[in-house]
């Protein structure tokens, strides 16, 4: 069953003439890992907000078409109920720390307190999520004393503990260093492996290629590509729309023109495919 069903979604922020999203239609199956790519301003963040109901509930603006998340029509469902279904994690780790709590453990409990979960039920849920996101060691530290990557995992845990059916991530690693990025990506991958549906807007194409089951490319608020990573990430449209491509694709494409890459072979998006392709031709 599709957990997300979007039909002809068009969205304008208040007082703008250009739509931020234009006539989007797609579905996501339960358990899928979908990456959303696109240049800055292409509509990635807005799509994340639309999937979680912040557009239009929080930002106002004009919306037409329909967004169904786990059967709920986002336009007619209050934000607080959508939060139970779709969790949102975004770029800046510092701004996702609530400020209401003094330790990581309490920070993760914050969402559960707001939902009215009985305290006895909280502890096992928090313990499980902390282990899953690898932050058990920081339980008693201040969330503000952590590195960006650690903070982002706290933000992730704080959302996951509320047990949403769908995790929406808006460039979760854009402000992080390589170690922090890897920590966060690995955590997200672990969640996905457990069956969580993940939608992630992301610039880092090498990670997208490694993780995603499917890639949606946006340009000027419209979907230009929607398919498996190997297909989307090697499309010439990505260069045309300033999204870029991995160096593996670039180099193989040029090599192909010089007969240094097998002519019938698909272009690579990850290092293993690149290695295999070049090796095949060396013989």
């Amino acid at each position: 069953m599709a957990i997300i069903a979007i039909q002809n979604l068009t969205y304008h922020y208040p007082q703008t003439t250009q739509p931020a999203l234009q006539d989007l239609s797609f579905q996501v199956e339960e358990g899928e890992f979908v990456a959303v790519i696109g240049a800055n301003g292409a509509g990635k963040s807005t799509l994340c907000y639309a999937l979680t109901g912040f557009a239009p509930h929080f930002f106002r603006g004009e919306m037409s078409g329909q967004v169904l998340v786990a059967g709920l029509d986002t336009r007619h469902t209050p934000l607080e109920e959508l939060m139970l279904v779709a969790g949102l994690v975004f770029q800046n780790p510092g701004n996702q720390i609530s400020g209401a709590k003094f330790t990581v453990y309490e920070e993760i409990a914050f969402g559960l307190e707001n939902l009215g979960v009985p305290p006895a039920e909280m502890r096992p849920r928090i313990d499980r999520i902390m282990a899953l996101t690898g932050i058990t060691d920081f339980a008693n530290r201040s969330p503000y004393a952590l590195s960006g990557g650690q903070q982002q995992r706290v933000a992730l845990a704080s959302i996951l503990v509320m047990e949403p059916k769908l995790l929406v991530l808006d460039e979760p690693t854009s402000q992080l260093d390589p170690i922090g990025s890897r920590e966060v990506f690995e955590t997200i991958r672990a969640m996905s492996k457990q069956g969580m549906t993940v939608i992630m807007a992301e610039h880092k194409l090498e990670w997208v290629a490694t993780f995603a089951d499917r890639v949606i490319a946006l340009a000027n608020g419209e979907i230009i590509l929607n398919g498996p990573p190997a297909e989307v990430l090697t499309s010439p449209l990505l260069i045309e729309h300033h999204i870029g491509q991995t160096r593996y694709t670039t180099v193989a494409k040029q090599a192909q023109a010089e007969q240094l890459w097998p002519p019938e072979r698909a272009l690579p998006v990850v290092i293993d495919e690149a290695e295999a392709g070049f090796r095949a031709y060396k013989k």
Binding site: T52, L84, F90, E113, A155
Partner: peptide, 22 residues
């Protein structure tokens, strides 16, 4: 962003809040 983060943690939910700490 902080406002969005608080919403995402159901801070505005119209429910009776509980507390981890007794």
């Amino acid at each position: 962003e902080r406002a969005i983060a608080l919403e995402a943690r159901a801070f505005k939910a119209k429910r009776v809040k509980t507390s981890l700490i007794h």
